[in-house]
Design a binder for these strands. Sequence first.
DNA 1: ATGCTTGTGCGAGAATAGTCGAACGATATG
DNA 2: CATATCGTTCGACTATTCTCGCACAAGCAT
Lengths: 112, 112
Amino acid sequence: MAAARVYKHPETGDIAIPRVMFALSEPLRLSMVQLLSERGEVDSIELGPDLPRSTLTHHTSLLRESGVVFVRAEGRKCMIQLRRDDLETRFPGLIGTVLHGYQESNPGMAEA
Amino acid sequence: MAAARVYKHPETGDIAIPRVMFALSEPLRLSMVQLLSERGEVDSIELGPDLPRSTLTHHTSLLRESGVVFVRAEGRKCMIQLRRDDLETRFPGLIGTVLHGYQESNPGMAEA
DNA sequence: ATGCTTGTGCGAGAATAGTCGAACGATATG
DNA sequence: CATATCGTTCGACTATTCTCGCACAAGCAT
């Protein structure tokens, strides 16, 4: 039986640069994307274990709707990963340079 | 004699990626940066000839304070240009891929 | 069946962002 | 000197975003 929760994602061609830029303009979401870049697919709870659940849902929804991440339900979990290939297709090098710039100012985050 | 208006710009090292992403997340500012990319230094009025002047100032100030552009006064004019070299230093390839992505969805803008 | 875990959606409050008119000041022109 | 041009600032209004408590529902364990 299909998962109860099915998530809608924009088609690769419909990913809009202003929305991607906006999604990556908030430090909290930037840190989430940084973590996804390192770890591949994770349970969304790992992106903000101390956040209130509605705050976490708000940000993961924005990342999904902007086309930055894929989300799929796995039982009651919510698995999330970077849409790296689609973002590379549409905006080559964007994620790499943004995360590199991010790590320059937040070097300690990688160990978290 | 020095220009009456002297503009403050962040040092290259102080340009923060979230602020750059934010500056480039608004379609109006994206179109301004697209135009600067093509024409080099221009009178700021060329970025939005039909905009109310306070709206134009609001956006040009945000672009300057985020580190995306250089601004200098020339008499009563306001000359503005992309900080291309500094942005390439800090975030290699960012501007190129963002503007390429922007033009994919707004092909007619180049002739404006 | 009950209890726990986790996500979602609603709604509220606070903060931020976008728009822009009006007033003012500096520069340039007549 | 008067007028025109253009930028800035203030303040107001509207819109959007961020945070998050609460209630509810689905999945899982007991």
